[in-house]
Nucleic acid binder design. Sequence first.
DNA 1: TTATAACATGTCAATATTTACATGTTTGAT
DNA 2: ATCAAACATGTAAATATTGACATGTTATAA
Lengths: 178, 178
Amino acid sequence: MRTLKYAILGLVNRNPITGYDITKEFNKELANFWYAKHSQIYPELKKLVDEGLINFEVIIAGESLEKKLYTITEKGKESLKKWLLQVEDLDPTPKDKFKLRMYFSEILNKEEIILQFEDQLIKRNKKLQFLNDVMNEYDRTIPDVISPEFGDYMVLEGAILREQSYIEWINRCLNRLK
Amino acid sequence: MRTLKYAILGLVNRNPITGYDITKEFNKELANFWYAKHSQIYPELKKLVDEGLINFEVIIAGESLEKKLYTITEKGKESLKKWLLQVEDLDPTPKDKFKLRMYFSEILNKEEIILQFEDQLIKRNKKLQFLNDVMNEYDRTIPDVISPEFGDYMVLEGAILREQSYIEWINRCLNRLK
DNA sequence: TTATAACATGTCAATATTTACATGTTTGAT
DNA sequence: ATCAAACATGTAAATATTGACATGTTATAA
């Protein structure tokens, strides 16, 4: 499936970028639907170079610090575009540890179950607050439809809707329990 | 983290069950938040027996077909309960291949992007329809709060809310694009 | 000046998951 | 009777992911 391959290819396609900065991207907007550790990214970058999908140029920062700045090749662009146009079946439902725990919660007592949901509610609200804060930075300026910022905006909105819906679910469960 | 361990322990705790039937459970309600292939389940069952968390009894069905019926031990129950009471940080946001593709969609043209969203919309609506059909089997009888069926009901509702919210997101994206 | 956080790139071992291989039984429809 | 689908349990190889190990540089605040 090699999804990480295309996640990286997509980023390198936007702008030449280092492995370190790719890792950072996986902790921003992108983190709302994909992520990877640097220990997975560096080997994948090497692989993509071997496959001729990206190139790199070594840059010296300061006195001696070496950075590798990766650039996409024509072959890489084609490969990315082909992947973007794919029509795939729906992914399996994402795994959810909290739902798994609540699914088996019958062996707990009511108070214990309620505590679990209330804790989850606090954490989800905090996350929603964070996402809303990021969204407010766009304030009145919704990005143009065909632009990299539109991608950021779109998935951020998706993340907010998802959290809201999760919170709605928690509240319904709590109402039933009380 | 061993989440599969607890998913299996939770199922075995409900009722004695075979590996084959555990695999089937992972394709029903449970599939809305956890799943595994039989090639992962059988080795995990062996491990749980080694750890003394479950036992099994060999049953002969028909002439000679051997089934292993697994039962939870006291130690297993304790282990499960401890896990259920855990208060954990939020899981990282689940990965979403479709969102990843749309995030990088700026290199496609508008028509191509719209086609992608429309295809996704059809598939998501189909899935929502399926979930609603399952939900309708409960019709007017919402299960009692502390019962295994309540778990089923709860997570099914969660799955429906999630699909609805995904569809809402797709529609918003399509509105912007058109 | 010096300590610390952030920058920068990698490897290795362990765990988790998927896909393919492998084998045999039982039930139910034609 | 016989065929196919479902029942039933496993292993092995490949891929994906995480967590720990490993090393060195640069910017900045105290």
